[in-house]
């Protein structure tokens, strides 16, 4: 199972998370988003970039409630809430946005 980007193939698991985190590029993010029926825009990129920074610092993809809490802290309550985040990523802000961000499945999502 793989995504196709500019003629290159990038392996992913059965749920669509990429196998090798270093394979990620912004172009790949667009491809994964399309496979998830999501059109990337500034708001969605903001969340994806936030997740990548979180992973870079803590080496984990945060659980959804941790993500929303952290977004609230850094971007304010108008973005750090369930409604806003689920509008951007209807199948789960942590799961879907992590997939697009090229991260593993969130730790602590039950």
């Amino acid at each position: 199972m793989a995504y196709e980007v500019n003629g290159q193939t990038v392996e992913h698991d059965e749920e669509g998370y990429i196998t090798n985190l270093s394979d990620w590029t912004p172009e790949l993010a667009e491809v994964i988003a399309k496979a998830e029926d999501i059109e990337m825009d500034d708001e969605r990129w903001e969340v994806v970039n936030f997740l990548r920074e979180y992973y870079d610092e803590y080496q984990i993809a945060p659980a959804v409630r941790v993500l929303i809490k952290s977004v609230k802290k850094t971007m304010g309550p108008e973005k750090g809430n369930n409604k806003y985040m689920y509008e951007l990523f209807p199948y789960g802000p942590a799961k879907q946005a992590c997939k697009i961000a090229g991260l593993p499945k969130p730790t602590g999502c039950v």
Partner: peptide, 13 residues
């Protein structure tokens, strides 16, 4: 994987 940075995320949890 170096997982020591993850301890610093525990506050978020």
């Amino acid at each position: 994987k170096n997982f020591s940075p993850t301890f610093r995320a525990l506050g978020d949890y």
